[in-house]
Amino acid sequence: MRRHLAFFLCAALATCRQQSPEQKLLKEIDPAASWMATLQFAGEQWLANSVPTRFVRATVHAAQKDLKKTARTVDQSQAAQSLRDTVRRQIDVATAAAAAVDRAVQDNDRRTVAMSVQRFAAAHEVLRKLEESR
């Protein structure tokens, strides 16, 4: 057990150093991808009347904080321009959709929420595919 852990520790430290900027970026956007999936799920549950409006809003605010941070990370990344652009576009889509959801749940605008859910799903799918291909 101990040896395994020590091995993993060394391996982990080693991989940290050898990572290419692309791999590093894909790892750093993990939380943002998870937030897109969260917003999609939260929106679906709101449409099903399973979660209250205040919860969706609080979740949106927490997600926006993380998306903003990730957007900055992407801008500062050394990864290839095409990858950065793709990632950045998804984050922008999700950020816009999050703002739309924030307003729509207050106005009980179910159509906008349903549309935003689709956009979260699409953005998350793009990021997931990128990660799979790394």
Binding site: S34, A37, F41, Q45, S50, V51, A62, R128
Partner: peptide, 22 residues
Amino acid sequence: PRGIRVTDYHQAALMLTQAFPF
């Protein structure tokens, strides 16, 4: 299956909503 990781309690809060709607 949805790709949600728990980095915030808001994400965990959604756990039971599917088994018990509302």
